[in-house]
Amino acid sequence: MPDPSPTPRLSARTAFGATTARLDSLGPWTLTERPDRALASVAARAADPQQVADRLASRVGGAIALGQLAQGDDHDIFGTAQNQWFVMADHTQQEDLARQLKTELGDMASVTEQNDGWVVFNLSGPGVCRVLERLVMADLAQMPDGSAQRLLLEHMNVVLLCRKHDQSYDILVARSFALSLHHAVTTAMRSAAVLATPS
């Protein structure tokens, strides 16, 4: 992982304690750790939630409903609750994403840095729902491109983002769970891969 630290004295590690992102391929599927994702949570304050929603919408070219992932040029935003969103950006470019947002939104919103609160994985490959159906109770067929759901995955609280149906999903989990989540997903990938192989 490129070192985004402004200091030469402290270097970043991935959620696995490594210097490079984890990547696992099993069957047609790939699980990739994405330490290059910056994250910030935005919660509108009481005064003018609509304006906060509008400001965020302008970053992705349209309104962001709860349960929806909006993908813009520089930002991806998904709604996590009423008047609450998560904003994703490129960590190598915008490690200070939370500060940028706070500067823009000021007293209209509460902004919290979540860069390392969560670890982002991408799970992709054709027919990847065969893997996900072993992990989450979501009705994946009803999750179109650009949708988001908060779910349990092997007792872990995750956010599932559908980037392309049956093809590419982001899974976000609290960073300390990274190893357990990785184990759960790669185990399911192995199961699905071997079951897809004619016996």
Partner: peptide, 13 residues
């Protein structure tokens, strides 16, 4: 109350 909460347990070492 105009108050917002979010966990940051994992965000900070």
């Amino acid at each position: 109350m105009d108050v917002q909460l979010i966990s940051t347990t994992d965000a900070w070492a």
